[in-house]
Design a protein around this nucleic acid. Structure first.
Lengths: 227, 227
DNA sequence: GGTGGCTTGTGATCGGTTTAACAAGTCACA
DNA sequence: TGTGACTTGTTAAACCGATCACAAGCCACC
């Protein structure tokens, strides 16, 4: 009988949080394959971590398995879906409709999982007024107004670093509680506003470092985070 | 007198490695601003870590500062450039010329830092034969041949997850020592081949989790990693 | 040249994350 | 129904990374 903990006043370690999407991904694959049950040993071996770690991670959120049986794939998948907040929908705006911005807007699995883009912004006159994926591209200086009329959950910044802070300020002033930042720069935001950086170029630099510093340790590295 | 350690048989912790690009970025900004010297206190405060951590991180690679003075921005920048391997050039191939692939190929700061795309591959007949950024888009089934004629340092996978493993196999067989993977799937590669995952969608899921689980802890989180 | 203030590099300590171990509970099958 | 093999959730131990604290050394100014 899967039982979810309350989570209030329980601090989830960063390291655990970063692994949740990995569990979600592998469980999704098992689900698609029609697998009904899985043990912590099987799943953790697929992922490449220890069974102990997986069980301990899950224990932050509740009890989802049965001794001697393991986990029902469907139940655990659903549980993690809810833990991650993927059972609800989110309104997104994106600022900076370059190649990266277009990649994100047109990425099908975002829409499938409830991430709905409701506004695209740019300051390139050649783009403004045109459509992409059924959305009009609007001038950046109308962003503040837009936010007043349409509440937004997540602001995505795929603009050049020089203007990233400025955009973040407008998003914050407009009441956007979370920012997904792809600009290679840090953002200063008031306490309480959530910022998730995805610095693609840093990932390439790590690759370059690893190419030049042969480790004897294992080679595969998943993306995770902390500051 | 900046002094670089040998690095052989010194294991650099993942966490340290992930911070190197951050140091590099901030030092670059200082350099561009014309700042000559910086103390660990100043720099770490900008970044949002402790001065102790920064000094300890640097100590894995050598001694780059001077007591009572701090660090010469230019020297430290150059040192980290070399540690990261950004002083040399790399040949890249990219497989999957969608929006994300185009974003990477056209990103100017990659070319500026020595990352040279020398081959683009796709299996969409509408793309094959056309040009992007001065490079012909070739059919994926010519990738193996291409790798025999042109040695490649990094293979970039921006293709759908269903074909990612297949592409990785061809890259590995072709002697490519490192793979930069954007497909939302894990890759099985022989020991010794370097794989750096950049799972964009996982980053969004973490954001969604954080939106639904208000932490009292600090809010800004940089991208880093481990597996 | 001497003195004071400042800053580095590093050993010691602290805290958090990962691994190990086990009691309790479930299923399958005789 | 009883037994054995299996698996969870959790407590304890080991490990690793972050912070602290300080001796050693440098610069600037008197």
């Amino acid at each position: 009988m899967p039982r979810r903990k309350s989570l209030d006043h329980v601090v989830v370690p960063q390291a655990v949080m970063r692994r949740l999407p990995v569990y979600y991904r592998y469980l999704g694959a098992l689900l698609a394959r029609g697998t009904e049950r899985v043990s912590s040993q099987e799943l953790s071996r697929m992922i490449g971590i220890t069974a102990s770690q997986m069980r301990q991670d899950l224990s932050y959120f509740g009890s989802f398995g049965q001794q001697g049986y393991g986990y029902r794939v469907r139940d655990l998948h659903r549980a993690i879906t809810e833990i991650l907040g993927l059972h609800r929908t989110y309104q997104l705006v994106l600022v900076g409709v370059g190649n990266l911005g277009r990649a994100l807007v047109s990425y099908p699995s975002f829409a499938n999982r409830g991430f709905r883009f409701c506004g695209l912004f740019d300051n390139d006159p050649r783009l403004i007024g045109s459509e992409f994926c059924g959305l009009e591209i609007r001038p950046v200086d109308t962003l503040a107004d837009f936010l007043h009329q349409c509440p937004v959950d997540i602001g995505v910044i795929t603009a050049p670093p020089e203007v990233a802070q400025q955009i973040a300020d407008v998003l914050v002033a407009g009441g956007v509680p979370a920012i997904w930042n792809f600009a290679p720069t840090s953002l200063k935001v008031p306490k309480g506003v959530i910022v998730e950086h995805t610095h693609i170029s840093e990932s390439l630099m790590v690759l370059s470092f690893r190419l030049n510093n042969p480790e004897e340790a294992d080679t595969s590295v998943e993306s995770a985070s902390n500051q």
